[in-house]
Design a protein around this nucleic acid. Structure first.
Lengths: 221, 221, 221, 221
DNA sequence: GATGAATGAGAGTTCATTCAT
DNA sequence: AATGAATGAACTCTCATTCAT
């Protein structure tokens, strides 16, 4: 009792959605990326708790079966999503490391986090749920540790060069600044109107002021 | 469709004894509080996305029906939970306002957030999901605004008295410090072992150092 | 957004199916038994591999949710089904033990297995799949051991009384006879037409002939 | 919709060399046999209800498409599997017929069924599900009838020669003995530890004792 | 006041099957 | 000859919610 899904239609000229089966030229990695994009959109829009594979499929314009074909299960999808997000984070860190200075780092961070309006929302959702999926939690812990490490090294260099206050250990400073960023990330989705570009700039400038050494020596002269 | 039996009144604002006719009063509020406690435990343990009314009922040792009897629906329960949590936050703020000084505020905050091991986990879960339940989001926005306001006023007073650096507007400082706290709150459930009492103290001390005025002027004299 | 399932109708006079919610006078055990009966019918009709909770619900005239309300999961349902079937088996054994004689046992067995046309089909399906559900396999092993034990004791008594041949140990005889019954049980659903009452009687009579002592001694006299 | 490429012919009845043009023949049959072996393993391991074409493909180390390429559908695969299993049974019967005597038959049967540890498990699974796939049920009925027929003829010959008791018609005896074998086959996968070689031998010896004529010679005394 | 039977939608997942390549 | 992307239906199970009792 074969249940062929309605009369097969393809190569239509109207641009209507066609039913395609069989083996397309599909690029596995590309399709996965496409589905991850769809998942990002869904999670940013509906939140993690209300996101479902069905919605992801719908967003991507394919069937649920296709999603589970490319990802073993939901956890796999979410993990891949987290990886891809952190890959962007890592790329940013790499770039920031090349051109030192905390200010540059802030700029890169701002660029990354504001360039994509879904970045903050989806990241905060992933963080919130990571705790309850062990493998996922490990991933974040690992990636986050790396992030703090780079942060610390940049600040330490700044301290050597006298551009960053030295009365607080670099690792504590890194912890404070990254927590600050996380805090904003968490609150941003609530009241995006509060985070105007102007205010974000003011906040970052203030952060730089916070960690800049006091002009004591110069004044003593 | 709030099911709270209208005729019952208790816990009135004036502190006067309220009308106690018929059934023993306080039962209703007490039972709600009990259920909220159970909900807190469940959310802290399983995460918001994996929390269900069933689990809450089970945790509280009662039936599913009882939960929906005391709360119109899930959103109602979660909103009440958020209210109760913020009530504790407000109480803390009230106390902090009475005995000024940023250091005192930090101590109060620390007391609140570390006194209950479920506090941070449940709060971060509630924040993460608030965005997607409109009424809930409004609640948090309102409460959070109030929180920043108190924070700002305390910092402003510090600036007047010279105990807080004045080169950054008080509202920006408040934003930065509260974001810092939020960031820690978000990360704490992941790696609680990283937040030893010693490190938390170091972080708070460093935060105080950050906002303390540079000792230049004194030296210049 | 409450999704009350269509306008509530009940107490209709037409005999049409009504939608009933809330708490009926329902007897928990009775409803479970009802669902087990439905499961029996479905498995006997479609086979274990094609049986689903949906079909069971449909057969019982209720929703899938109701089934999972009464049984934690599919395995639980199947285990309960097996228990109930074996309870009947045990009752039969008890009765057979009271009135000894292999012939009586055969009669009881026949009564049980032919009284319900679904008995053999469902039993053979349960046996076939038991191997792959550990808890279920243990149940069957336990029950089946008990069955062989009773069988053996009845045969041993027969041997003492000289009604059963003594040249084969009773436990081997029991194993052979019960295997014979199992074999028929397995084949019966295939070709029920082959197992006419007359032939079944002939087979059982032949089985009795098989285990009756050879009439040598009598003739020697 | 059988997909076997029509022009290819091999394994013809006459034993003459068949047409071998174009691609190397035998590949097709060999691959099918390979897949059947994989299917046997999967069914024996996971049971029929939990067997899937996916698992068969995986077990065979090929793709899902390959399976559906060599077999029109699942039923086709299962039918082919049953055929191949019964082919071995038939070969055994043929051999047993050549060298008469019930004992020889038992030995052959034992050889067949214990030689391959997957034989009993997969056979009992196939039997259990045959009822619910009509074509398959017909196949088994046909093959099984043949089996009983051979069994009967061997027993009848034994009766003529006085090596098998004549007080029970041969067809009933065949029915009983084959049912006995089926019963063991059904139970074996459950408690293989119970069927030690020693016990199996004892059971078969006892079966021979059962059908051996009573030692009437003593009667003459 | 409180219960718990029952609902129906939707979740994640598996599956046999199709077919362009 | 063989692949593997994709389908869509069906599966088990969980859930918030309703309501007669």
């Amino acid at each position: 009792m074969p249940k062929s899904p309605a009369p097969r239609v393809h190569g239509d000229v109207n641009g209507e959605s066609t039913v395609r089966r069989g083996r397309p030229t599909g690029d596995h990695a590309a399709k996965r990326a496409e589905l991850l994009k769809a998942a990002t959109t869904v999670i940013a829009r509906d939140g993690y708790a209300n996101a479902s594979l069905r919605k992801v499929a719908q967003q991507a314009g394919c069937t649920t079966g296709a999603v589970t074909y490319y990802f073993a299960n939901k956890e796999d999808l979410v993990a891949a999503l987290a990886e891809s997000r952190f890959d962007r984070y890592d790329a940013m860190l790499e770039a920031a490391r090349a051109e030192p200075g905390v200010k540059k780092l802030f700029e890169r961070w701002l660029e990354l986090t504001t360039g994509d309006p879904e970045f903050w929302p989806v990241m905060s959702q992933l963080f919130a749920h990571a705790r309850y999926e062990p493998g996922f939690a490990a991933l974040i812990e690992r990636r986050y540790a790396r992030f703090r490490e780079v942060y610390t090294s940049i600040l330490a260099r700044g301290q050597e060069q006298g551009t960053v206050r030295a009365d607080i250990p670099a690792d504590l400073l890194a912890d404070q600044l990254s927590a600050m960023g996380d805090g904003w990330m968490m609150m941003f989705p609530f009241e995006p109107e509060r985070f105007t570009p102007a205010r974000v700039k003011a906040l970052l400038d203030a952060a730089i002021t916070l960690i800049t050494p006091a002009p004591t020596t110069r004044r003593a002269t």
